[in-house]
Design a binder for these strands. Sequence first.
DNA 1: AAAAAAT
Length: 496
Amino acid sequence: MIFADLGLSEKLIQAVTDSGYTTPTAIQAQAIPSVLMGKDIIGIAQTGTGKTAAFVLPMIDVLGEGRSRARMPRSLILEPTRELAAQVAENFDKYGKYHKLSMALLIGGVSMGDQIKALEKGVDVLIATPGRLMDLYDRGNILLTGCGLLVIDEADRMLDMGFIPDIETICTRLPATRQTLLFSATMPPPIKKLSDRFLTSPKYIEVARPASANASIEQGKVRVQSRRKRDTLFAMLDAGVHTAIIFCNRKTTVRDLNKALRQGGFDSGEIHGDMEQRDRIAELDKFKDGTINILVASDVAARGLDIKGVSHVFNYDAPWHPDDYVHRIGRTGRAGATGKAYTFITEEDAEALANIEKLIGTTIPEITVADPGGSSAEAKPAKAREPEERAPRRRTARGEAKARAPREDRAPAADVAGEEIREEKPRREPREAKPREDRPREDRSRDSKPREDRPRSADRRPAASKPRRSNDRDDGPDDGWNGPMPDFLSVGFGES
DNA sequence: AAAAAAT
C-alpha cells in the first residue's frame, strides 16, 4: 500500500513525497479513502499513529481549490490545546504547499486582530480551540453556516477538559448536512453519545494504541523518596540523556525543577499552562531545534505533541490518571525510534502505580539508581539496595557541568529511515555538540540562530492565509533518537 | 490531589 493508492490528488502525493513519506499508516490507509468519499468517521487513535495526516491529507483534496467567502470558513478543526492546534496548522502548511488553501488558527493567548482579519478575508480551514472559537463566534466574526466539514480531534481529552458542551453548541451551529470526523483515543459514554448525535452512519476505524502496544519504549520505575527525586533525576540525566521530557503533576513543580536544572548547568526549559502563549511556543521551539534538550512539562504537553527524537520521558511525578501515563510515555519511542520512559514512584504513588500497571497490563520493571547526587551514578538491578543515608551532595553548576560527559558522547546516531507519516513536527537539525562549559550561557543565544527555512515564531502568526513559502522545506523522515544509550540505563530491565 | 481552555 502506498499513498498513490488512496485516491489522493497528484499534487498532494507530491507534497507527501517531498516530505519523504511513501507508506500510509493503518489509520491513514483506512480513513483517507472514506474521507474522500465524504463519509463520517470515528477514528479510535492517538497521535503517533499518523492520525493527523489521516484527516489533513484528504481534507486538502476535498477542499481543493474551492473559494472561501468572508467570515464563512469551509471547514473546522477543533483541538483541545493551543499547541495541538498549531501543530495541525503546520501540517496544512506542509502538505498543502501545492494547493491554494487559506487557513486561520484561532487559539487563545494571542491577539485577536490577525485572527479576525483572516476570517474577514475568508478561510478554507479553521483550526481552533473551543474557547477562542466561541468567543469570536459570539462577537459575530464567524459564520458557520458554510462549514461543511468538521473535525473533532482528541475528543476524549475535550471531554476531560469540559469542552463537550461547547462542542455540542458548535455542532448545532454547523449545517446539518456536513461531514464530521471524530477522533478519540478512547470511547467513554459521553463521547459515544456525542457521536450518536452528531455523526451520520460513521465508519468506525480503530488502530492499536501506540504506547501500550509500543515495544520500542523501554519502561522502568524508580522507587525514590520525594526529597531525593531531584538528585536521582540529576544522576540519571548526568549519565547521558539525549533529549528528555520531564513530566510533573504541578505547574509549581515544573517551574522549580526547571530552575534547579538550569542552575545545575542543564540546557532545560519548561512548559505549562500558566505561561504566556508566546513563551510556550518559544520553549517548544527551543526544544525542537535543539537549543535545549530537556523540557520540563505539565500535562499540557502530555498528549498529542509530536516532537521527534525524544529519547527519554521521565515521570518526575507519577501521573494520577493511568491514561496520562500512556500519553506521557508516548512522547518517546515514536516513528520506530527507541525510547526510554522512567517513572519515579514514592510511597504515596502505590495506588497510582497499581492503576497504571493494570491499564498497561504489565508490571513495569524496577530499576535502582545508585548514588544519586554523584556524577558517576549508575543504575543497578532492583535487588541491589541503595545505601539509604548517604548525604546528598551539593552540586555547583561548575563542578557538575565538568563532570558531565561531553556532548559528542551523547550525540544522536545515524537516522533511521521511516516511511510513514507519524510525525507532525520532525526535529530539524542535529543538536549542538559542544560541551556546555565551553559556552557561557549568555553567549549561546546569538549562536542559536533559527534556520532560514523554518518558520520563525514571528511567521507563525494566526492568519496563515499569507502566501505559501514556495520552497517549503523538505521534512525528510528523520526519526530522531536512535543513538547510543548509556549502558546503565539499559540494565535492570526484565528483573521484576 | 492537577492541568487545560476565553478574558
